[in-house]
């Protein structure tokens, strides 16, 4: 970060690890306090630790992804309406995010569907499980009607495949079970089982503007996918905020970004909540399938079709954030 600031960078985009984001947000807060004439903005597109917009929130941090609690809130909204689900198995990686997912799942399920029993709440070592079959056997034997997991990467593939192989046919609610080889590897074994919580509709196609954007991306990068559409939102909103402020100074841009409303390429209304700098946006729950797919993932023919949409207003959760604003 010091090096980036030294090179004149005043806008830092970061995602993919809440650990890094927690360190960055503290460092940037400190930097901005010490250098009031030379401030830096932190645009977080993926780190979903709820703390970043609650107890650890600060004025210079803006989050463009729904946080883990909001995603779980959306997932449990869907589970709430499904009367076939009477028992749930929660499994995750043994680290902060896996634990946060499990805690949120228990909390929201208790509130929304007290009749659901949680038949398993398990953490497994992260990145060290060579075979998920024993876990899948256990899930199967527990008689769960749904599985919730925050797994990503190889742990997600292993779990998804192993559950598929036991012949268990229940929805698996996930955060990160798509793209980067995961969609392709899970393939048919996860069809109509894997559900993913995400932003930005892929199938059915939302708008012509998004279609042109997606096709343009695929023409340039035929082997890649738009894995995190929120990055486009973040960049567009930053540009819009700069225009609105008529300045590229972080302090002016931050003021413009706060509370800003924006319509994404998907035609969705986004709003940067002023109280905690958490973007409020519609959240979708999609199913992994090879039917009715226009934009697939990993060029595999499999992709995500939206099943449920939680309106932006319904995704909002109260915040404990009390940020100090510059005068």
């Amino acid at each position: 970060m010091k090096r980036a600031i030294g090179e004149g960078v005043r806008y830092i985009f970061q995602g993919n690890s809440s650990g890094v984001a927690n360190a960055l947000t503290d460092a940037i807060k400190k930097h901005n306090r010490r250098n009031p004439d030379d401030r830096v903005l932190f645009l977080n597109y993926s780190a979903v630790d709820p703390a970043l917009t609650n107890e650890k929130c600060n004025y210079w941090h803006f989050r463009f992804d729904a946080n883990a609690d909001m995603k779980m809130n959306a997932m449990t909204d869907v589970i709430k309406t499904n009367d076939n689900i009477k028992s749930v198995y929660i499994i995750g990686q043994d680290y902060s995010f896996g634990k946060a997912v499990a805690a949120a799942a228990v909390k929201f399920l208790k509130e929304k569907r007290p009749d659901i029993t949680i038949v398993g709440n398990e953490l497994h070592p992260i990145g060290k499980v060579k075979d998920f079959t024993p876990y899948a056997t256990k899930i199967r034997a527990s008689g769960a009607d749904a599985v919730i997991t925050g797994n990503w990467g190889a742990d997600m593939v292993g779990l998804g495949k192993a559950i598929g192989e036991t012949g268990l046919d229940v929805p698996i609610f996930t955060y990160y079970a798509a793209n980067d080889g995961i969609t392709k590897t899970i393939g048919a074994s996860g069809k109509d089982k894997i559900r993913l919580v995400h932003e930005g509709v892929l199938n059915p196609v939302s708008t012509d503007a998004y279609k042109a954007y997606h096709e343009g991306f695929k023409a340039k990068n035929p082997d890649k996918d738009i894995t995190q559409y929120r990055i486009a939102n973040a960049v567009q909103m930053l540009a819009a905020a700069m225009e609105k402020a008529g300045s590229d100074k972080p302090i002016d841009v931050a003021a413009a970004l706060e509370g800003m409303e924006f319509t994404s390429l998907h035609g969705e209304k986004l709003m940067m909540r002023a109280s905690d700098h958490q973007l409020i946006q519609p959240i979708h729950i999609s199913v992994h399938t090879d039917e009715n797919i226009v934009f697939d993932a990993d060029n595999s023919g499999f992709g995500l079709v939206v099943e449920n949409t939680i309106a932006a207003a319904d995704t909002e959760l109260p915040t404990t954030c009390k940020m100090k604003r510059p005068n």
Partner: peptide
């Protein structure tokens, strides 16, 4: 990334089902 290396199709079936588990 994880490679989509799959079992041969001839072996992609449940050999037996026991207690509803494949």
């Amino acid at each position: 990334d994880t490679k989509a290396y799959h079992e041969p199709e001839i072996l992609q079936f449940p050999l037996f089902t026991f207690f509803g588990q494949d």
